[in-house]
C-alpha cells in the first residue's frame, strides 16, 4: 500500500488537490499585473522575488462561478522547471492519500472540470479532485496558439 501527500485547496466550493511534489510554495497573492491581449485564462503576471510568473485562473478555465468572496491565494507550481502561479480561493490542509482510494473521474462531472483532472479520491469529508498540472498547461498553450493564429488570420 502506497500513500502520498496532496495539498488541498478550494475553488468555488470544490475541493481540489495537487501532489505536494509539484508545489514550491503557497503565498497570499501579490499584486497581479494584467497582460493586455492575453486570454482570459491568464489573469496576469506576478513578481515572485524577481521572477515573473504567469497567473492561471482556473475558475474561468473550468467555467465556474466568477464571483469569489474569499481572499485569493497563489499556489506556486513547479512543472518541468517552469514556475506558474495558480489562483485559488482558500487553502486547506495537506492530506495523506492512499493509492487504493483512487477512483476514475466519474462521468457525471462536467467535462469543463474533468479534462483537467488526474483522478478523484474518496475522503471521509467528501470528494477530492486531483488536478493534473500538465493537462492544464497543455490546454492553455493550445488555446493561446489557436487564439493568436485566429488573430493573425483576422489581421491578414
Amino acid at each position: 500500500m502506497n500513500s502520498f501527500k496532496i495539498s488541498s485547496f478550494y475553488i468555488d466550493n470544490y475541493l481540489f488537490g495537487l501532489n505536494v511534489g509539484h508545489i514550491q510554495e503557497i503565498i497570499k497573492s501579490p499584486k497581479i499585473t494584467p497582460i493586455p491581449s492575453s486570454s482570459d485564462y491568464i489573469c496576469g503576471l506576478i513578481n515572485l522575488r524577481g521572477q515573473i510568473l504567469s497567473c492561471i485562473d482556473l475558475r474561468s478555465m473550468m467555467a465556474l462561478d466568477n464571483y469569489s468572496e474569499s481572499k485569493s491565494m497563489s499556489v506556486i507550481v513547479d512543472s518541468e522547471d517552469v514556475l506558474i502561479s495558480v489562483l485559488v480561493d482558500d487553502v486547506s490542509e495537506i492530506l495523506e492519500i492512499n493509492d487504493y482510494d483512487y477512483e476514475q473521474t466519474p462521468d457525471n462531472i462536467s467535462n469543463n472540470i474533468s479534462r483537467f483532472l488526474h483522478g478523484v479520491y474518496q475522503l471521509n469529508s467528501g470528494i477530492l479532485l486531483e488536478l493534473d498540472i500538465n493537462k492544464i498547461l497543455k490546454f492553455i498553450e493550445n488555446y493561446e496558439i489557436k487564439n493568436s493564429f485566429n488573430n493573425n488570420m483576422r489581421g491578414a
Partner: peptide, 18 residues
Amino acid sequence: KPLDRLLQHIPIYSGVTI
C-alpha cells in the same frame, strides 16, 4: 526578463521587467 512560455506567442511583447 524572458516571458513565460505560456505567453511567448503574443507577438507584441518581447519580455517583462520590474
